[in-house]
């Protein structure tokens, strides 16, 4: 069987499984006398989703979450690029970057949250700091590995074409590091998304109405199980969108196009 045929079939099976799982869910709700406070029906969940998106603040909260993550990722990206560039410049900053990574990378953002509250307060700034912390280190580690991996043949070629050090960094090393950079971005996304939702659920809303985490927390407090599922559904959909579409698109435009996929 050829590859594209297999892929098509695989996609079909996946959709069938989704339908089977949904059907099993709905049947469980209908046929057993399980309380809707424990497991609401799919219809209830969808109507909670529509209700909170149109009348409530779910849409604003979703956009706020995505905006915070996008801003935090952008900030980490610039920082990671800067630190990686520094570490290529000289051995002394390189050692500093290594020390920072060793200290900060294994440190979960939530463990830092009490300190972040102390330093940055409880506002948007605190959570922004948390997102940057969660995204920066995996991104930086991957980036540094990718940059180091660049064969000397290429960099020497650049030098003999009298390219400046900066040009070698951006034109040769950074392109060569693209697969690692994308892998780093994926890890950074997953980590910061988790940290953001986690922080809101543990430490309460951020900003005026908060993000998805505070939506989940409020639904839980007000005993709205259908709304709780609606929030989880949004998180799942965003995950699918970002992993399956956004990163796929970036890969197509870069590593696939440059023929770097192994």
């Amino acid at each position: 069987m050829n590859d594209s045929g297999h892929k098509k079939k695989n996609r079909l099976y996946r959709w069938i499984w989704v339908l089977v799982l949904l059907l099993a869910w709905e049947l469980t709700v209908r046929l057993s006398d399980i309380s809707p406070l424990m497991l609401p029906g799919i219809g209830d969940i969808l109507s909670a989703l529509v209700r909170d998106a149109t009348e409530g603040r779910l849409l604003t909260q979703t956009l706020f979450s995505l905006g915070m993550i996008a801003g935090g990722m952008l900030c980490s990206f610039v920082l990671a690029l800067f630190l990686a560039y520094l570490s290529r410049l000289h051995e002394i900053p390189e050692a500093l970057v290594q020390v920072l990574c060793t200290i900060a990378h294994p440190l979960p953002g939530l463990a830092l949250m009490p300190l972040i509250i102390l330093w940055f307060g409880t506002g948007t700034g605190a959570v922004f700091a948390l997102i940057v912390h969660s995204a920066l280190w995996p991104l930086l580690l991957n980036l540094v590995t990718g940059l180091e991996r660049t064969p000397e043949l290429y960099t020497d070629l650049g030098k003999s074409l009298s390219m400046s050090q900066t040009a070698v960094f951006f034109e040769i090393r950074l392109r060569y590091a693209a697969p690692e950079l994308i892998a780093g971005l994926k890890t950074a996304w997953a980590r910061s998304w988790r940290a953001f939702i986690g922080a809101e659920m543990v430490f309460g809303a951020v900003g005026a109405y908060g993000g998805i985490g505070s939506y989940l927390l409020t639904r839980r407090t007000f005993m709205d199980t259908a709304g709780l599922f609606a929030g989880i559904l949004i998180v799942v959909l965003i995950g699918i969108f970002v992993e399956g579409l956004l990163f796929r698109l970036i890969e197509k435009q870069t590593v696939d196009k440059w023929g770097m996929r192994t």
């Binding site: 509250i117 307060g121 409880t122 506002g123 430490f203 309460g204 809303a205 005026a208 109405y209 927390l217």
Partner: peptide, 20 residues
């Protein structure tokens, strides 16, 4: 829009340290 959920001890600290 101005409410913040906090434990009592955290809120006391926030109030004493002059945050928002």
């Amino acid at each position: 829009a101005q409410l913040v959920s906090m434990t009592h001890p955290d809120a006391v600290n926030a109030l004493l340290s002059g945050t928002e």
